[in-house]
């Protein structure tokens, strides 16, 4: 909360608006999924929202993000077009990937959303390449790459930390530690549980952040971004957060027994939206909810009435 005093009313509203946007879009996906019109594996971001919103709100429009398959949040927080996201989930030609990718593969180049992979760790190194390119091209944009706690077990995470630090790349590594890789707890996968401390061994700063506190994420991200932009090199942020619904799909997963009802309840009580409610005053929150409801309605209606892709092999697909 230490950063909060400095926040302008505009930033406070933007943070809250984006949190609501991410939540309302996904709540609508949850509500409508059973109609079986959206047919691709959704990895919902509900519970994680403060991470993408905090980081993306600290970024400039010309900065780039490399999210992962838990993709909707970053896409929207960075300003990706809502209608194109929904059309993609409905498998339509007007989708952000023209229907070829589905939920796990979203992109909006205008907004700086550079594409997402369904392979864990798949785009961490892409982010480095983009950062390298930006510098070689003399640009002042920076890059943020996000990934889960599980992804930090992949060799490429370690290779990337080393390379980015070695070359002082303008990059922000954002680990969204939700304690689980699918349904396996981090204790059963890692021997040392402080992911942010991996940074020390590679010579870059690593910080632990409350990933359910959008103001805290915004503040840490803003500092790391300023550092990157001024040539100070990369930073690793470990944002501790929690996935509320099942790993993939739109349901709760209490029946599986890999986590306790008590644990889920405790994290629900720390919901990032509830915690951020104070960012807007009076009935501003209600106005935001209503404004978003209208655009979500529109995006869903639009997606439903859009054409399916016609061609099996897109032009230019074959090498």
């Amino acid at each position: 909360m230490s950063h909060e005093g400095a926040l302008s009313a505009e930033v406070r509203r933007r943070l809250y608006y984006r949190l609501r946007l991410l939540r309302q879009v996904e709540e609508r996906i949850v509500a409508d999924y059973h109609h079986k019109e959206m047919r691709s594996p959704p990895h919902l971001y509900i519970g994680h929202e403060a991470v993408a919103v905090g980081v993306c709100t600290a970024l400039r429009a010309d900065d780039l993000v490399f999210p992962y398959y838990r993709s909707h949040g970053w896409y929207l927080a960075k300003g990706g077009e809502l209608k194109a996201l929904m059309a993609e989930l409905f498998g339509r030609e007007t989708g952000c990937s023209k229907g070829w990718g589905g939920s796990m593969h979203v992109i909006d180049l205008k907004a700086g959303v550079m594409g997402t992979s369904a392979i864990v760790g798949g785009t961490i190194s892409h982010a480095l390449g983009a950062a390298l390119a930006l510098r070689m091209q003399g640009k002042t944009s920076v890059v943020a790459v996000s990934f889960g706690d599980g992804a930090t077990e992949e060799g490429v995470f370690h290779e990337a930390l080393n390379f980015a630090t070695l070359r002082r790349l303008p990059i922000l590594f954002v680990c969204e530690n939700n304690l689980y890789s699918t349904n396996t707890h981090i204790r059963d996968r890692q021997a040392q549980l402080d992911i942010y401390r991996r940074a020390e061994g590679y010579g870059l700063p690593g910080h632990l952040v409350d990933g359910n506190d959008v103001v805290a994420v915004y503040g840490e991200a803003a500092q790391a971004i300023a550092r990157a932009r001024s040539g100070g090199g990369p930073t690793l942020l470990e944002c501790r957060t929690y996935r509320v619904l099942e790993h993939c799909g739109v349901n709760a997963d209490d029946d599986l027994g890999y986590r306790t009802a008590n644990e889920v309840a405790q994290w629900r009580a720390r919901d990032p939206l509830t915690q951020a409610r104070h960012l807007v005053a009076g009935n501003e929150a209600e106005r935001i909810v209503e404004e978003i409801r209208v655009s979500v309605d529109e995006a869903f209606a639009d997606a439903r009435s859009s054409p399916f892709p016609a061609s099996l092999v897109p032009e230019g697909a074959r090498p």
Binding site: R39, S40, G91, R92, G95, S97, G99, W100, G101, G102, H105, F308, P309, S311, L312, V313, P314, A317, R318
Partner: peptide, 16 residues
């Protein structure tokens, strides 16, 4: 298979 990646959209996946 057709000489392309497997598409996601149900409309073309069904024909793949």
């Amino acid at each position: 298979w057709p000489d392309s990646a497997v598409p996601s959209s149900q409309a073309i996946e069904a024909r793949f």
